[in-house]
Design a binder for these strands. Sequence first.
DNA 1: AAGACGAAAGTGGTTGA
DNA 2: TCAACAACTTTCGTCTT
Length: 327
Amino acid sequence: MPTKTHKKTRARKKTTSKPKKKPDIAPSSHCPECGSQNLMRDYERGEIICRDCGLVITENIADYGPEWRSFDAEQKNKRARGGSPTTLMRPNKGLVTEIDQYNRDIRGGRIDARQQAQLHRMRKWHKRVSIASSFEKNLAIALAELDRVGSALGLPDNVKEAAALMYRKAVKQELIRGRLIESVVAAVIYAICRMYGIPRTLDEISRASSIEKKEIGRAYRFLKREMSMDIPLTDPSTYVPKFASALNLTPKVQEEAVKIIKKALRKGLISGRGPTGVAAAAIYIAAAMHGERKTQKEVAEIAGVTEVTIRNRYRELKKELKLKINL
DNA sequence: AAGACGAAAGTGGTTGA
DNA sequence: TCAACAACTTTCGTCTT
């Protein structure tokens, strides 16, 4: 059983190598326990860790984390630390008791061979036991997935934390049963992105997580209902900068597009329309107004809608806002 | 020839009985 | 569970530049 899971996580790591963190890994060192070179620096806890067996190889490397300051009592409560700030991204929130690797007694003296062997076994079992409950096991898988997908989507850490918190709640409410962990994770990410106004479509999340769009949507609606979240409908203008930069349009065009959307919003003619379609049409119009014309096809491709949809939105916007556009 | 336009039919999902 | 429905897509013929 351990070998099976072992192989699985390893295989997954390979396919999703993150170029970002590569330089952090000391290239020449390897794990003294299992010989693996798959090491990871964890600045939050100040350790170098073997990704394969979990052995802590070096402790007390420099902490690159923020030095918190507090401005009121509540913050102080949250941020005061004896150790690193807690993080929801780890199954145990980063609060752990570890048996260290140095085979010394409390005064730093040597320990005899038999006791060293015992210590070794204790370390091993301590690690295993600490992720024993199904709750923790579930979280361990989910949070790894969350981190992977979150990174693939370029989400900042605070957003990933928020997603982790929501996932914890979902597990506590037993909303995962009968569902793939991965699909719930994807749904949570989608929900958080919408709450934070981060433009990520179901399509993108689907691509990053290899879960079908349909499935993510279903899980999302389920969570939304069961956890009674109220999520505002997506403001199309959140997609404007994303599309505009993908099309190499100037900031002027972006402003114009946002203005158009604002106007349309006030007239209440966005309701029920897909936000990406509206954003695409607004950009198409704005680009034409500023002489940076793009074809419908180009815009459609970036926005993930068809030309026809752009035309329909475009027609509505033009009529309702009485825009003067000369082609 | 490429792009824009719009009609018509098809698709997948939601809603309400 | 089913039918009605809205939004969107696909396809295709026509018009414009």
